[in-house]
Structures are given as C-alpha cells and as structure tokens.
C-alpha cells in the first residue's frame, strides 16, 4: 500500500484533502465562535452559479476564471444577505436561507439551460468534488518527491490549495489578537478603536477564499463539514482558544486522511471492488469525531452546567 502506486494515486488526494480541510477548519473556529457557522454552508451553495457563469463567459472549465466567478458569487451572496437582513429587518438565518437557496436554484437552472455536455461540470461534481481523480501519474515512487520534473506534473489543485492555506494561515496569525478581541467582545473592541466591521467582513472573505479554493479541489460537502465539525469537536475538548485551534487542525487532518483511506481501501479490505466517495467518507469521519467529542469531550457540557 505504501509503494509507488500509493505515491501516484493516493498521496496527492490525501494531501489536497488535508490541506483543504485545514484551510476550512482554521477560519471555521472563529465562524463557530461568532455563531456564523452556517456562512460556510451558504458560501458553498452559492459558489455553483459563480462557476457556471464563469464557464458561460469563458467557455472553458479553467480553474482561475471559475475561482474568480465563485469568489464573486460568494461576495454577492454576502452582500445580499446583509442587504436583505437590514432592509427587511429579518433574522440572519432566514435571510441566509433566502439567498443561498435562490442562488443555488439559479445556478442549477443556468447549468441545465447551457450546453455542458462536453465538459465535466454538473451539480454532483460541485457537491462531491472529484478528489479521487487528482492523481500524479508521473510519480514512480517516493523518490519522485525530489524529482523536479515529476513535481511539475503534480495536480495543479495541490499548489493552489497549499497557497490558499498559506494565505489563510498568515492572515489569521497576523490578525489574531484583533480577531479574538472582536469575536469575544465586540463592544470592547470598538472602544479600543478596532475596525470591528472590517474584521468581520475580512473573516468572512477569508472563509470564502478557503471555501472557493477547497471547493475547486474537493467539492462542497467537505467544505461545509470541515468549516464546522473539526472546530465544533475541538470546542468540546478545551477551554483555551489556542488549544482549540490545534485540536481542530488535528481533527481536520484525521478526518481527511482516515476518510480517504477508508473510502479508497475500506471496501477492498471487506472484499469489495469499488472505492466509495472520498468526500462523503471524510465528512462522515468528521461527524464520528464530533459524536465522540460530544459524548466524551472533557469540556462538552455548557459552562454553567459544569462543577466549578
């Protein structure tokens, strides 16, 4: 299992899945604390019309235009949610529900109306991604990791998601204190003169960036699951924010690796012949982790219900 075939067929998807999971879990921690966990859900729904429009404009399924389209759609969605919430004085959950279902419906309609028979673009692909197809044919073994020529043939999703993760991580590191302050106590952050609203918009934009890049590689199930499940499970493990982040990264990695391995090799171990959906399995594993944390996590109970 650990030979040349593994490096060529399994290593790139596992790496991409892990990096995508971490890139989503990082901002997910703060979205969770701000009770905005469902932003990830909303963003990954509205990405569909974005990529369909990008396809209609450019006529190809090239990655950058699609990511741009997806990013623009995410931005439009956030603006629409905010506008509807304010103009209509509607609670955020309902405003979100109005916007993301509408935009997703528009995406599906656009997709059905346009001729995409020649390209790999459909709703299923958008939902589950195609992690399994991100293979590295040039690899001949572990040595290929030092072979520049072979490295150049890595699936382009890998450097893209790695770069995205780097950006997300660096921005979050640099803005750590203001982010924590404004998440914990917005009023206090304001009295310090922190640009509270800009920080909020920045966080959502960062989440959108992670979602769009991860979506391109792994589909929206993983995006939604990784925004929420690893941070949620981590929250039940500790009362320290820094520790929570590390737990969430560990859980995200575990979900991605274990999920991929179970989907790819599990059926073989059981005597089957076909691999299962890796995206679905990664989400499922993250759910099992959350279930275990909810049952046994040391800080699972609400603070008021624990002995002092």
């Amino acid at each position: 299992m650990m030979g040349a075939e593994f490096v060529a067929l399994s290593l790139p998807p596992i790496l991409i899945g892990t990096l995508a999971a971490i890139a989503c879990a990082l901002p997910g921690n703060f979205l969770l604390l701000r009770r905005q966990a469902l932003i990830g859900d909303a963003i990954s729904h509205v990405v569909l019309p974005g990529i369909v429009l990008a396809f209609l404009v450019t006529g190809t399924v090239a990655a950058w235009p699609m990511m741009l389209g997806a990013g623009a759609a995410a931005l439009v969605a956030v603006l629409m949610i905010e506008t509807i919430r304010r103009l209509g004085r509607i609670e955020p959950g309902a405003a979100m529900g109005v916007v993301f279902t509408t935009m997703f419906a528009a995406g599906v309609l656009l997709l059905e109306q346009s001729d995409t028979s020649g390209v790999h673009l459909d709703v299923q692909h958008a939902l589950y991604g195609n992690l399994e197809s991100l293979i590295w044919l040039e690899a001949t073994g572990w040595d290929s990791l030092w072979d520049v020529q072979a490295l150049a043939a890595l699936p382009p999703e890998l450097p893209r998601i790695a770069l995205t993760l780097l950006v997300v991580a660096v921005v979050m590191l640099l803005s750590w204190r203001p982010l924590v302050l404004s998440t914990f106590d917005e009023g206090f952050a304001r009295t310090l003169g922190l640009p509270v609203r800009a920080i909020g918009v920045g966080l959502v934009s960062l989440a959108a960036l992670a979602a769009v890049a991860a979506f391109d590689a792994v589909g929206s199930i993983i995006v939604i699951a990784m925004f929420i499940c690893p941070p949620a499970a981590a929250r039940l493990m500790t009362d320290r924010l820094g520790t929570q982040i590390w737990w969430s990264l560990g859980f995200a990695t575990l979900s991605a690796v274990l999920g991929y391995v179970l989907a790819g090799y599990g059926p073989l171990w059981l005597g089957g012949t076909h691999a299962l959906s890796a995206a679905g399995m990664i989400a499922s594993v993250s759910g099992v982790i959350l279930l275990l944390a909810a049952l046994f996590g040391p800080c699972r109970a609400p603070a008021g219900q624990r002995p002092g």
Binding site: L33, T183, F184, E186, T238, D239, R240, L241, P302, A303
Partner: peptide, 10 residues
C-alpha cells in the same frame, strides 16, 4: 449581557 459566556477564554 453582550458576551458569549461559553467562549474559550480564562
């Protein structure tokens, strides 16, 4: 009232 008392902070 304005704070989430579940926040992971000591």
């Amino acid at each position: 009232a304005a704070i989430d008392w579940e926040f992971p902070a000591r």
